[in-house]
């Protein structure tokens, strides 16, 4: 990922650790169920679900809206606790230990009082081991790190701008930088390109693919764009309508790096059509 000289020692250390546990599941859901509300008013957002994501996988989660895709992400990021069942992240019960998690949301959710660069640097302020050195390195190494990332996503020179001076697409790029700056082992993306136009979206697919190929973090991507899922994922999980359950789980064998022209070739089109059918057939009004 971002290789900053001084950081090298620590980085290789964490990479070694990753290798030792390379067969570990990055995420494991065991009959995880989520119910909102209580009594008669309760709704089951997620039926008991099993899901295993291995280290270094790029899993795309697709399904109709409201099927609980985002709920799974919230479980993995510890924003939500399961009503029953278990969620393991990095081999331990979620929340038991701090795992480097980067998250990007459908809205860029930049803090409006910080510059774009400070927003990108936010995880370094919170997440160990970076937080200890945040004060000293704010204007030094960390700043360079943020600038390097911003340049990769095409935002060179925008670091000093305030979030509201940027367009939606630019903010989403910055949001991606923020999710990646602390070299997370786990990247959780909740429809990060959902609100963007086609061209920006496709460009960002390419950027995200490159970033992933560089350091291969584990990624869980929630999307309702089937082309996006097929373009980015090494594996695609399809979910049924609410209460959501995983009804199909398949590997994507298309070679990398994938390109936009590839998405119009027969193999790719066949894959997306097959996914589409799976989803439309499970919709309650389809029968």
């Amino acid at each position: 990922m971002i290789t900053v000289p001084i950081e090298a020692g620590q980085l290789s250390g964490s990479l070694d650790q990753q290798k030792n546990v390379s067969n570990f599941e990055a995420i494991k859901l065991e009959k995880a169920e989520v119910i909102y509300g209580r009594g008669k008013k309760s709704t089951q957002a997620l039926a008991p679900t099993n899901l295993k994501v291995e280290k270094g996988e790029f899993v795309a989660l697709v399904g109709p809206s409201g099927c609980g895709k985002s709920t799974i992400l919230k479980l993995a990021s510890n924003l939500l606790a399961p009503s029953s069942g278990h969620v393991h992240v990095g081999g331990r019960e979620v929340g038991a230990k701090r795992v480097g998690v980067g998250m990007a949301f459908q809205n860029p959710t930049m803090l409006p009082w910080l510059s774009v660069r400070d927003n990108v640097m936010l995880p370094l302020k919170i997440v160990p081991p970076f937080r200890a050195r945040y004060r000293q390195e704010r204007k030094g190494e960390f700043r360079d790190r943020a600038e390097a990332l911003l340049e990769k996503v095409g935002l060179k020179g925008f670091g000093d701008k305030k979030p509201w001076q940027l367009s939606g697409g630019m903010l989403q790029r910055a949001s991606l930088c923020r999710a990646l700056i602390h070299d997370p082992e786990l990247l959780l993306l909740d429809e990060p390109f959902g609100a963007l136009d086609q061209f920006t979206r496709e460009e960002l697919w390419g950027i995200l693919q490159n970033l992933w190929l560089e350091s291969q973090p584990t990624v869980l991507l929630v999307t309702h764009d089937l082309r996006e899922a097929a373009f980015l994922g090494t594996r695609i999980c399809v979910m049924s309508p609410r209460p959501g359950q995983i009804i199909d789980d398949q590997r994507v064998t298309l070679p990398r790096p994938r390109t936009i022209p590839m998405t119009y070739e027969q193999e790719f089109v066949k894959l997306t059509q097959q996914l589409r059918e799976l989803i439309t057939h499970t919709r309650p009004d389809a029968a």
Partner: peptide
């Protein structure tokens, strides 16, 4: 949503309040 950004990073309540 703004709080979620920090929560997902494992921030404590005090850190969320402060930031």
């Amino acid at each position: 949503e703004l709080e979620d950004v920090l929560k997902s990073l494992g921030a404590k309540k005090r850190e969320i309040l402060w930031n």
